[in-house]
Computed example of a mutant assay.
Amino acid sequence: MRTVRVSRDKARFGYGEGGTIIEIADPLPPRYWDHPANAWSPLLSSRIPGLEGVAIKYEGSHLSGSFKDRIMAATLGELLAREPHCPGVVVPSSGNAAVSAAALCARAGLPMVAIVPAATPQERILPVLARGALVVRFGEGPSQSYALADQLAESLGFFRLYSTFASPWAEWSCRSLGREIAAQAGNVSRLVAPVSAGPVLIGTANGLREAGRDIPPLVAVQAAGCAPIAAAFASGAQEVSPWDGAVETAAAAIADRLAGYPQDGTRVLEAVRGSGGSVEAVTDAELAQARAALFAHDGIDAEFSACAGIAWLRRPETPKVEGTVCVVTASGFKHTFAGDVPSSPAAPSPLRHRLESFFARLSEPAVLLD
Rank of each mutant, 00 (worst) to 15 (best):
L148T: 09
L148Q: 10
D150G: 11
Q151N: 05
Q151M: 10
L152S: 10
L152A: 06
L152R: 08
A153E: 01
A153V: 06
E154S: 11
E154K: 13
E154D: 13
S155V: 05
S155L: 08
S155K: 13
L156T: 03
L156Y: 04
L156I: 05
L156N: 03
F158C: 01
F159Y: 10
L161V: 15
Y162V: 12
Y162K: 09
Y162N: 13
S163P: 04
S163Y: 08
A166I: 09
A166V: 14
A166P: 06
A166G: 14
S167Y: 04
S167K: 03
S167H: 01
S167A: 08
W169I: 05
A170T: 12
W172I: 00
W172L: 02
S173A: 15
S173V: 05
R175E: 03
R175Q: 12
S176D: 03
S176I: 11
S176M: 10
L177V: 11
L177F: 12
G178W: 02
G178D: 12
R179M: 11
R179G: 01
I181F: 13
A182G: 14
Q184E: 14
A185I: 09
A185E: 15
N187M: 11
N187S: 09
N187A: 15
N187G: 07
V188T: 09
V188Y: 14
V188N: 10
R190G: 08
L191Q: 11
A193D: 06
A193C: 15
A193K: 02
A193H: 09
V195R: 04
V195H: 02
S196P: 03
S196K: 02
A197C: 15
A197V: 13
G198M: 05
G198A: 08
P199N: 05
V200S: 10
V200A: 06
L201K: 04
I202L: 14
G203F: 03
G203M: 01
G203A: 05
T204P: 04
T204Q: 02
T204L: 02
A205H: 06
A205L: 03
A205N: 02
G207D: 01
L208P: 11
L208N: 13
R209M: 07
R209T: 13
E210P: 05
E210K: 12
A211R: 07
G212Y: 08
G212W: 10
G212E: 04
R213F: 13
D214F: 04
D214R: 15
I215K: 03
I215W: 06
I215L: 07
P216G: 12
P216D: 11
P217I: 02
P217M: 01
L218E: 02
L218C: 06
Q222C: 00
A224G: 01
A227N: 03
A227C: 14
P228W: 09
I229W: 01
I229E: 06
I229S: 01
A230I: 00
A232P: 01
A232L: 07
A232I: 09
A232S: 14
A232W: 12
F233G: 00
F233Y: 14
F233K: 02
F233Q: 01
F233M: 00
A234E: 07
A234P: 09
